[in-house]
Simulated scan of single mutants.
Amino acid sequence: MSKIKKLYKENIYGIIGTLCFHILLVSSFLLAEVNLKGEVKEEPIILDFTDMEELEEPVVEELAEEKEDENTPANETEQTQASSRSNQAVNDAPMKDPFFDEEYQKEIAEAQKLVADVNKQLAKEVKQLEEFAMPEETTEGMDPDSIKNTIYSGESNIHYFLENRYHLRLPIPVYLAQGGGLVVVDIVVNPRGKVIQAEVRKNANLKDPMLEVYAKQAAERTVFNTDKSAPAQQKGTISYTFVAQ
């Protein structure tokens, strides 16, 4: 027991020093582990695509050039032939369609013929109204005292008034009309018997506007006897009674 005490006294400082060293070593390890766990930092990841872009661009351009070469005809002749084949296909398509059968083609031909006939009729010269012939009442060789100023043509009649004058030629337009009604025309006649002016009086009861046209034409064609003593412009009237045909 005395030996142990003696050894203890001799080595007490060494033992204490050793313990302190180990305590400090353990403490430093613990502190180092805490720092490692608590101070972990995340660093950003940077990806560099510069090299990849430089490599991809030539590839894209090469593909575009190859595609353009494929779509471009080898020469102008090939392009023309391709266009011709396309147009021929379009032109031939309707003929192969069941809808465009023989009956349809027949109707088209008839329609084209009808259009041609209409154009042919329209191309013909249209006669002017002045060229239409009218029957006339003449008094050539008659006694002026026996000439009446009212002329009957069937159920229609023409009556004129021109003081001290009688007609030599009196056109009768009633045969041209389909409708009926009374048309009065104011006339102006020169000494030679020519009608130099004719104006139709408006009649709201007329349903056929052509009656006025025919009456005016007939009045302008009327010829009266010559009277040198007559006024330069002698006024009168001609009345046309049309009966519906």
Rank of each mutant, 00 (worst) to 15 (best):
L176Y: 14
L25D: 09
H159S: 01
Y214M: 11
D117P: 10
P58H: 05
V126A: 10
P94W: 07
P44C: 07
S83F: 11
L63W: 11
E155Y: 14
A64Y: 14
N119E: 15
A32W: 10
L30C: 05
E42W: 09
A93L: 12
K37T: 15
E155S: 12
P171C: 06
T241Q: 11
Q121M: 15
P98G: 03
M210H: 00
T138I: 08
Q217S: 09
N11C: 02
C20T: 01
F99N: 13
D143Y: 05
K207W: 01
K127E: 15
E61D: 06
A198S: 06
L63M: 09
S156D: 03
M134V: 04
E110H: 06
D92F: 15
K127Y: 10
P94A: 13
E66D: 11
F224P: 02
E42N: 09
R85Q: 08
Q81I: 12
F29M: 02
A116P: 04
E70Y: 09
N164Q: 12
N205D: 10
M1S: 08
P98T: 03
K207N: 04
M134R: 02
V90G: 06
E125L: 07
I151Q: 11
E163C: 07
N75A: 13
S146G: 13
A177Y: 06
N91C: 14
T50F: 02
N164D: 01
K120F: 09
L182D: 12
L182T: 10
Y13C: 07
L182Q: 11
I187W: 13
F21Y: 06
S229T: 06
L170R: 05
S86K: 14
G38A: 15
P44E: 11
P191L: 10
E70N: 06
E62P: 01
Q217E: 06
E163S: 05
S86L: 12
R85G: 05
A82Y: 02
D51V: 10
K5Y: 09
E125D: 15
I172M: 01
S153H: 05
D143F: 05
E220L: 15
T18M: 12
A232F: 10
T226V: 08
P173T: 00
L168G: 10
V195I: 14
Y240G: 04
A64G: 02
V126G: 13
E140Q: 14
P171H: 03
I196E: 00
N35T: 07
S156Q: 07
A93T: 05
A32K: 13
Y104E: 06
K194C: 04
N87W: 12
Y8E: 08
L211N: 04
E68C: 00
T226K: 15
E70G: 03
E10Y: 09
S229Y: 03
P135N: 04
E212T: 00
S2T: 12
K5Q: 13
V60A: 05
V189W: 06
I4D: 08
K148A: 03
V184W: 01
A232N: 03
D208G: 02
D97P: 00
V26Q: 04
V188F: 08
E42F: 11
A198G: 13
S83G: 15
V60K: 14
L63Y: 09
E68N: 02
R192W: 11
V200F: 08
F132E: 09
K6L: 12
K194M: 05
Q234W: 02
R201L: 11
A89C: 11
I158E: 13
K235D: 06
A133L: 11
L19H: 00
V90C: 10
N164R: 14
